[in-house]
């Protein structure tokens, strides 16, 4: 019997050999039928990307351009296909965004381009592609990653959207601040909202769930920052738009409630070490609108203070909030027309769009900063759960 001498790690070159006729099985098992909640949960982050890249390396090693082209086309088409099929599932989209980016980083890290080899170990440099320059395919993968990112934002927005108005505006977590006479029974505590309504906690839990999923998939930290910034933009824009359209939301107590909710969101950012990703800044218009609800609105000094404070709100938005402002009790007066005129005069030189509402469909441009991996390809083992027995470690 041939003695099966277990080969030591160092004998492997970090490639995976496969037969041309197995290419379809490869993309079927590794892409089309892989369940992010199934076997994929136990994989090292980015494993599918590394496996696909190791197969690509072997096709390059054979100097077989047809095999390289065919594999890349199959991989890209399969990822697009799975996202067409399950593009409304956040986990699936997040999983393939992370793996598409990892695959793109591998193509750069092992391209042989000096600029992408700075952090490589000598062994990793030995593993660079030897025959083909895949710069054009990198561009196609980058285009695909942008499409997947936008799909992820849409997925996430569909989940977050129903929570925002209820959680950020309607649900009151600060007891009694609305000045409503407490009824005989103690008001419900903040965390138990009426059936079916969302609270601020619902939003925070959902943000944590998104964040945990992306981390589990090995999403680049720089990309997670961009996703979180986009999430906060959507929360801030939807909340402000509703405040600008609803008289019942423009009161001193609502201003207090909104500032409390924003502070909880900022706490969440701090907790996730995401204070510098630009997310907090996207809430600035909402913060200023909440402050506007709480400051005095009578004298010229008040007008001066408001004009210098509300530098991220348009004149139309400031005027709208002042018009909608509803005194919380009989002792307080409404904002006078004269005062609003004063504000408009002070702001008439501003060069700004007359638009009132923020565009909640705005998606910030996404970038995928190069993120090399320290993982040594020759050490990668393929779990049997992936049913890829037809691949041979080389």
């Amino acid at each position: 019997h041939p003695v099966n001498i277990p080969r030591r790690e160092k004998d492997f070159q970090g490639m995976l050999e496969y037969k041309k006729e197995d290419e379809l099985k490869l993309v079927k098992n590794l892409i089309l039928e892989l369940k992010p909640r199934g076997v994929a949960v136990n994989l090292i982050p980015g494993l599918p990307a590394y496996i696909l890249f190791m197969c690509l390396r072997h096709a390059d090693y054979l100097n077989d351009d047809q095999k390289v082209r065919s594999l890349l086309t199959s991989v890209i088409n399969s990822i697009k296909k799975i996202l067409k099929k399950r593009g409304d599932d956040f986990e699936t989209v997040s999983f393939w965004l992370a793996n598409t980016c990892r695959f793109l980083h591998c193509l750069k890290q092992y391209s042989g381009d000096e600029q992408f080899m700075k952090y490589n170990t000598p062994k990793q440099n030995d593993h660079c592609l030897s025959n083909f320059d895949l710069a054009e395919y990198r561009q196609v993968l980058s285009d695909l990653a942008i499409q997947i990112y936008q799909q992820l934002i849409k997925c996430m927005e569909n989940i977050l959207q129903p929570m925002i108005v209820s959680g950020m505006l309607e649900h009151e977590t600060i007891q009694g601040v609305s000045g409503v006479k407490p009824t005989g029974l103690r008001k419900r505590t903040s965390s138990i909202a009426d059936e079916g309504t969302y609270t601020l906690d619902s939003i925070l839990r959902q943000l944590s769930s998104f964040h945990a999923t992306m981390c589990q998939h090995g999403t680049d930290p720089e990309l997670i920052k961009q996703v979180v910034k986009q999430q906060f933009y959507i929360i801030g824009a939807v909340t402000l738009n509703n405040l600008l359209l609803r008289k019942d939301m423009c009161s001193w107590s609502k201003g207090m409630q909104i500032r409390y909710n924003v502070s909880q969101l900022e706490e969440w950012l701090r907790d996730k070490n995401l204070m510098v990703c630009g997310a907090k800044e996207t809430l600035e218009p909402l913060i200023q609108a909440a402050q506007l609800l709480q400051v005095k609105k009578k004298t010229d000094e008040d007008a001066e203070a408001i004009c210098s404070m509300c530098n991220t709100l348009t004149t139309a938005q400031i005027v709208k909030v002042l018009n909608l402002y509803t005194p919380v009790n009989a002792f307080e007066e409404r904002v006078s027309v004269t005062f609003i005129r004063t504000i408009q005069n002070r702001l008439r030189d501003r060069k700004e769009s007359p638009q009132l509402l923020l565009d909640t469909k705005t998606i910030y441009p996404v970038t995928f900063p190069f993120s090399p991996s320290s993982l040594a390809l020759e050490t990668i083992q393929i779990p049997s759960s992936l049913s890829l027995g037809f691949l041979t470690r080389v």
Partner: peptide, 30 residues
Amino acid sequence: RPLPRPRILLKAPTLAEMEEMNLFEDEDSP
């Protein structure tokens, strides 16, 4: 050490063109 042979640039189709090259029947295509 001999200079590495220059790598051959593989021309890539665009994402849309790749779609045409779909390698398997699109079950869910109408």
